[in-house]
Design a protein around this nucleic acid. Structure first.
Lengths: 330, 330
DNA sequence: CTGTTAGCGCGTTCAT
DNA sequence: ATGAACGCGCTAACAG
């Protein structure tokens, strides 16, 4: 059953719909007296504003779209949750768009979101850089953990370089010399930065970069397992692994287990993200913590500010990371 | 920049807006000739229909709301993903509403969704039964994994009773006599059913129900850990644990590790859900598999059918479960 | 086959 | 302080 409308409320109160509208929006120009009367009727009839009509009129929908590669990955889910926790109290609803890393889907989603009249879009990392056509020209947009070519888009990300650096240095300080890095085969910005941190740490400690130790995979547990198995059967010697993702680390651990290689005695491992699986793996995984909550919160905050035209948004926010030590390193 | 409108297209093509609308909606009553002409202009000007206006007119938004207790829990995330994968190709967008088990939030979300004009709602299990006021009276609604008091609402769920039964029976067949069950302290229907399965299995095998072995907790890893620690320090003897959730099982495993209790030698464990953490815990967790994908897919399918008034929807769909054996049982 | 007209529910001038 | 009237962009009668 459709809701009661502003016009009917007006009738019932013996005023015009304009007045009711003003009262509803606190836009002044009405007497306290009629306000009371109207509000009472509104309560009595359980009036609720038709947001669709309002959107049509105002061109604002109080709705934002979040584009995410895989909601099933706790890392992304955490960020989405943080976005929600910030946005909902501010009156916004959230469209969730799961791309499964599919480029075409991503484009479709953006078109769809625009058509549905969202006020803004938040992108979570996925395919490489955001192609021009994909990013909306008309809509406020902020990216998380992904550095689009487009220099005009706001980016919120972790300090991936430092993350790669401290992880690698920790391994070195524990006496490792041959440190494998497992990273995304795609050249996406966060991975590139972590890799740069890795190289910088090696260099600082006078360890030459061995190309045999850098392995590129599709980001997936089993791919990591296969990659490490391959490494082992190829006879490549190594005493540590820096996995650019916790899930990649888990995959590596599986391979090591299969070959009865002891962790951390024979090989030490460090992951990235600090999602809960890191805490419950065997052995519990040392990893680089990203502040997922802040990542989402800040992105949402910036986006809403952009929508409200408040701040002249700063460009790149980068959040600090930290090492949480567990049992895959001494 | 706002989009070009149907009216302008009509002008440019020298026809009326009604004709353009008909062409856009394939509703017939126009010549092939004008169709071509109009479509070309539409392409040239990159026209895109204003969904908000359309919604206002048609009272359909091609939008559904999904209410979920914790998107961060892989179990729910999997279901949400399945819902998405079914709905998006059918033209629907999805509002995600994370309640964090908060009853008040849930009510707010429903109000909000109604106001925003969603065409239907899917509930995922959370607080006990859905209170009357919470469930929308006007909107098609389907529940997953949760049996609301309201008998008119469609429910899609796993065969929780069987799940509880086969898990418990497996434990019994492996020689366990004192089987702890860890379950949600709230009396929610899926848990109640699993518990019933547990009791039935015990009874079938002539094992008396020992109230000391049924522990109720808030569903949370650490709560499970504490509960098991408590059990141990209290000196309660047990040789198996049936945890009504994988996360609960992980919590139990942690407690056992702390006390150097060997799994599965001294205590066997079975979880529920089969989320990925079960695969990567130590030891890998035997668990009851729920078909998350199907759960979401079927729910979405039923909901969309309801929206399209197609089928006279069946009431209760219950999906089979299965035991996946890993290393926490022999 | 096509055009005219009339709203969907709301916010907003411009009057008074 | 309040009302009349218009229009956001679209679809759905009804006419022809």
């Amino acid at each position: 059953m459709s809701n009661i409308t502003i016009k009917k409320i007006a009738e019932l109160a013996g005023v015009s719909s304009a007045t009711v509208s003003r009262i509803l929006n606190n836009t002044g120009r009405y007497s306290e007296e009629t306000k009371e009367r109207v509000l009472e009727i509104i309560r009595d009839y359980n009036y609720r504003t038709n947001v669709v009509a309002k959107s049509l009129r105002t061109n604002k929908s109080k709705t934002i779209g979040v584009i995410v590669p895989d909601i099933t990955n706790e890392f992304f889910a955490n960020i989405v949750l943080a976005i929600e926790n910030y946005s909902v109290p501010n009156g916004y609803s959230i469209f969730i768009c799961n791309t499964s890393e599919d480029h075409e889907k991503e484009k479709m989603f953006v078109r769809d979101l625009e058509a549905k009249g969202v006020d803004g879009i938040i992108y979570l990392s996925g395919n490489k850089q955001i192609p021009e056509q994909t990013t909306s020209k008309h809509l406020p947009t902020v990216c998380i953990d992904r550095n689009p070519g487009n220099k005009e888009i706001v980016v919120v990300e972790s300090d991936n370089f430092s993350g790669g650096f401290i992880a690698t240095e920790e391994l070195i300080q524990q006496g490792c010399k041959r440190i494998v890095i497992i990273k995304d085969e795609r050249d996406v910005s966060p991975m590139a930065e972590r890799y740069r941190g890795y190289r910088e740490a090696l260099q600082k400690h006078g360890i030459p970069l061995d190309e045999n130790l850098v392995v590129n995979v599709k980001v997936d547990v089993h791919e990591a397992t296969k990659a490490v198995q391959h490494l082992i059967s190829r006879g490549t010697a190594f005493d540590a692994i820096f996995a650019c993702t916790d899930w990649l680390a888990i995959g590596a651990i599986n391979a090591l287990h299969q070959h009865q290689i002891l962790i951390p005695d024979e090989v030490k491992i460090i992951g990235f993200d600090n999602i809960s699986v890191a805490q419950h793996s065997y052995p519990p995984l040392t990893t680089v913590e990203q502040d997922k909550t802040k990542l989402g919160e800040i992105a949402a905050q910036i986006l809403l500010d952009m929508i409200d035209q408040k701040k002249p948004q700063k460009q790149n926010i980068v959040l600090p990371v930290s090492l949480v030590k567990r049992n895959t390193t001494l």
